[in-house]
């Protein structure tokens, strides 16, 4: 079996999410990687993809119409290449989720998004109900169209391979959709709801100054958003929109570091779905310690600078 993976690159490297998709694809068969872009970008992307171990061949599609990953021409391109492949894969990224269902519709296939595990060539595990249940589904379609949940597959390495590159003749022409502009936020600090890492502070910090002095350097190191407990917000340490909890923002980052937060019910309700929870607290009996994966008991004013330095 041969599998086609649509691969995204960024700054001359294959994105980690796409390398996870490649790793997933390796479980299904030989992997061909498709890279797209205008002439120059596709050239660079092909070079990056060729270096990923596990990729047997790189298909390079260079054309202006493919410059911005617009779903309409990209889907037509993937469909035009689909004939030889049993499975068509992409990462569960904004681009993958945008284009792959369109591909599936054009092939008369029911797509399978957010694959977390591959049972066999027809059978896959995916989350439903916001991850509160995991469904194992078996597809009767001749071709499978999948998007791969990055966190579920260890990514293939970025370097070490040397796959041949083959240029694809691009004939697709779709003009119904046109790229206008892109906007990436100027602030380095991610937003609470979408942050991968959150550093959150509570009453234990004792003042707004300490919030800035102790938490911000740690958050900078981790590229983290800053959150707070309700007591910290009520005490005026930080503005309202930092509040994590049932009455504030409900978050589920990969890493949540709770500093000096006791863990009142309403706070726990807002962050208990975080993948990994770290509690830094002086009280070993604090409720936050009961839900934390890792707890460090002690004086936060010593621990936090030490942690910041160690990262």
């Amino acid at each position: 079996m041969t599998v086609l993976v649509f691969v995204e690159t960024e700054a001359g490297q294959v994105r980690q999410a796409s390398r996870s998709a490649i790793a997933a694809a390796e479980k299904l068969g030989d992997v061909h990687a498709l890279v797209v872009g205008d002439a120059a970008a596709s050239e660079a992307a092909a070079a990056a993809a060729a270096k990923v171990p596990g990729v047997a061949k790189v298909l390079k599609a260079g054309a202006d119409v493919l410059a911005h990953d617009l779903a309409e021409p990209l889907a037509d391109l993937i469909v035009s290449l689909a004939g030889n492949y049993t499975h068509l894969l992409a990462a569960s990224s904004a681009i993958g989720k945008n284009v792959m269902p369109r591909v599936a519709a054009l092939l008369d296939v029911q797509p399978i998004p957010d694959v977390m595990a591959i049972v066999d060539a027809d059978t896959f595990v995916r989350p439903i109900y916001a991850g509160n249940a995991l469904a194992t589904v078996k597809s009767s379609d001749a071709k499978k169209v999948l998007t791969i949940r990055a966190a579920s597959f260890d990514p293939a390495p970025a370097e070490g391979g040397s796959a041949p590159v083959e240029a694809v003749n691009v004939t697709v022409q779709d003009t119904t959709s046109r790229f206008v502009s892109q906007h990436t936020p100027t602030s380095d600090r991610p937003e609470l709801e979408s942050a991968r890492v959150i550093v959150s502070g509570g009453r234990g910090l004792q003042s707004g100054e300490n919030f800035h002095k102790y938490l911000e350097p740690l958050a900078d190191k981790l590229g983290a958003a800053i959150g707070a407990s309700r007591v910290a917000v009520d005490s005026g340490y930080v503005p309202n929109d930092c509040q994590v909890g049932q009455t504030g923002k409900i978050v589920a980052p990969e890493l949540y570091i709770a500093v000096g937060i006791s863990g009142a019910i309403q706070h726990l309700a807002g962050m208990k779905d975080s993948k990994v929870i770290v509690a830094i607290n002086k009280d070993p009996e604090a409720p936050i310690v009961q839900v934390a994966d890792y707890s460090l008991i002690g004086d936060l004013f010593e621990i936090v600078p030490e942690l910041t330095a160690a990262l």
Binding site: I128, A133, L134, A135, T136, K138, S139, A292, Y294
Partner: peptide, 21 residues
């Protein structure tokens, strides 16, 4: 006609008990 059949549905693995470092 459905193309997918649900083989099974399971609860996600529960949280491991935490450790104190």
């Amino acid at each position: 006609t459905r193309r997918l059949t649900t083989v099974s549905v399971a609860e996600p693995p529960s949280r491991k008990a935490g450790v104190t470092v």
